[in-house]
Design a protein around this nucleic acid. Structure first.
Lengths: 215, 215
DNA sequence: GTCTATATGTAGATAGAC
DNA sequence: GTCTATCTACATATAGAC
């Protein structure tokens, strides 16, 4: 490939391929470090080292630590939402929606992506942080609430005896259980005294949440 | 009251009343600041300011930031465990133990203490941090696992068809739902679009978990 | 035991060369 | 756009006066 500076007439408006690649590496590195240490525990230097980039490169691409965190969360949010909504459509195509089907559409895509790609596993931990800490409420509202509203509306339709308030509580309980399964494998293994196949765990999670929501 | 230095024959082995009062204030302040900002976000200076003490006073009482965090978690752990075990005994006295009774004994004491005392509310947030982050596994193992084992054994007895592994998963799901209710009031209110009386929420939580565990 | 002052390291951010 | 070198601020921790 020729160098990027000899392209002649092309204006330098759009980021070059190389700049885009750097941005991706910086975001991947931020994802890994934020997942491992949390927002306050992570340092720009750690992220730069993980990305194999000099420290100064992080700021042009991230725009400060908070903005970098925001971008890290936002980057995969649309893909995650789309995977969930696609799964919901597929459940609907299979017949009338059930509680298990609804939960499956919400939860399974996350686990499938995490199984395929370690970066999605990092992302899952970051989602857990964002969901648990009111400090990131604005980010959660932007990235996750729209999809949550859709699933909550379906949940309300499936449990007509529940108030919206009760449905919201049950939804939050279920999401917290899902995030616990994604992030607390260590504790589960310690208490359970044996490793478990992931597929069984997910089936168990969905049964657990469906029964709880039905109650 | 007379000053502490004129007591004559008493050796200065045991901490003076004043020192004990300072220690209590330092731990209360640490509890509040750790709960608000997390371990990495909290600073010794914030804790000192909250306690109304000079910065240097924190180290003699806490022995470093990590040790101070450990002491903060450990201080109320015994009282919490005892409250849970007492509640379990009371449930047993009322007749054969049920799933709801077991969950009630584990969860209600925490909510009752939180309702009475804002410091217990801070403590609840810290417990959530410790439970969610593998970094504090050793502290969790020391402070919470012994009681968790007892309740897990009762749970296994009540659900004979479940393996230990499944019981442990269900237990972790239930604890995460409980902690979500303690820490995510903001998100629940936002999704639910109306405030909820706490008593109803706890009843709902216990019904939800009991149904999930029965599944 | 309590508090003041300070040592030491490292954080986030930026200015300016390439 | 990329990278080097550096600035400023504040973190934890401690040494030593009271």
């Amino acid at each position: 490939m020729s160098s990027t500076q000899t392209l002649g007439t092309t204006r330098q408006r759009a980021p070059s391929k190389r700049a885009l690649a750097t941005r991706t590496r910086v975001l991947d590195a931020a994802e890994a470090v934020f997942a491992d240490r949390g927002f306050d525990g992570a340092t720009i230097r750690d992220i730069a080292a993980q990305a194999g980039e000099p420290v100064g490169t992080i700021h042009p691409h991230g725009g400060g630590k908070e903005a970098l965190f925001h971008r890290t969360v936002a980057r995969r949010a649309a893909a995650l939402s789309q995977a969930r909504l696609d799964a919901l459509d597929r459940q609907r195509a299979d017949g009338p929606l059930t509680l298990e089907g609804l939960l499956s559409a919400f939860m399974r895509p996350f686990f499938e992506l995490s199984a395929d790609d370690p970066r999605w596993r990092h992302y899952a931990r970051i989602v857990a942080f964002v969901s648990a800490d009111d400090r990131w409420r604005a980010i959660a509202a932007e990235c996750f609430d729209p999809t949550a509203e859709i699933f909550l509306a379906e949940l309300l339709a499936l449990t007509p005896s529940a108030s919206r308030r009760q449905a919201a509580e049950g939804f939050v309980f279920s999401v917290s259980a899902m995030l616990a399964l994604l992030t607390s494998q260590g504790r589960i293994a310690a208490l359970g005294q044996s490793p478990a196949p992931q597929a069984d765990q997910i089936d168990h999670l969905i049964r657990y949440c469906a029964a709880g929501l039905a109650a």
